[in-house]
C-alpha cells in the first residue's frame, strides 16, 4: 500500500538555524531518504518552498479568486513529503517516526487511494 508522509514543521526554525545546523538537518534528511531507498519502500519525495510562495485558487459562481498563501494557516507548515510503499499502516507509521521531521514537527500519514 502506498502512503503519503506529510511533514509539518515550523518554517521559522529554518531561519533561526546557523549554516552548520542547517547542514546537519539536510544530512539527516538525506540519510533518511537513503534508508527508505535501501529498504525498498521509497517512491518519491519533494521539499516545498516556504508557504509565502504559495497561491490558492478557488472558483465560485464562475468567479476565479487567486489568493496569496496556503489553504490552511497552521502553526507548523507543510514543508515536504515522502511517498512510500509498505505492506501496512503499522509500517508506514514506523517510517514516519524515523523521519527527521517527526522530532521537530508533526508527520501526517495519509493512505493513497489505489486506483
Amino acid at each position: 500500500m502506498q502512503y503519503l508522509l506529510l511533514i509539518y514543521d515550523d518554517e521559522k526554525n529554518d531561519l533561526k538555524m546557523t549554516q552548520p545546523q542547517l547542514g546537519e538537518v539536510m544530512q539527516a534528511y538525506m540519510a533518511y531518504t537513503e534508508k527508505l531507498r535501501t529498504d525498498g519502500v521509497y517512491l518519491g519525495s519533494n521539499r516545498l518552498r516556504p508557504v509565502e510562495t504559495a497561491s490558492s485558487i478557488r472558483i465560485r459562481d464562475g468567479k476565479t479568486n487567486v489568493m496569496n498563501g496556503p489553504f490552511a494557516e497552521t502553526r507548523e507548515q507543510l514543508g515536504g513529503y515522502y511517498l512510500i510503499d509498505v505492506p501496512d499502516e503499522q509500517k508506514a507509521r514506523h517510517y514516519a517516526a524515523l523521519c527527521p521531521g517527526a522530532k521537530t514537527g508533526t508527520m501526517e500519514v495519509r493512505p493513497v487511494w489505489a486506483m
Binding site: S55, I57, K63, T64, N65, V66, M67, N68
Partner: peptide
C-alpha cells in the same frame, strides 16, 4: 492588484 490578479489568473504578489 488582488482583484485584477484573480481576473487574470496571476498570483496577487
Amino acid at each position: 492588484a488582488a482583484t485584477i490578479a484573480s481576473a487574470f489568473l496571476v498570483a496577487p504578489g
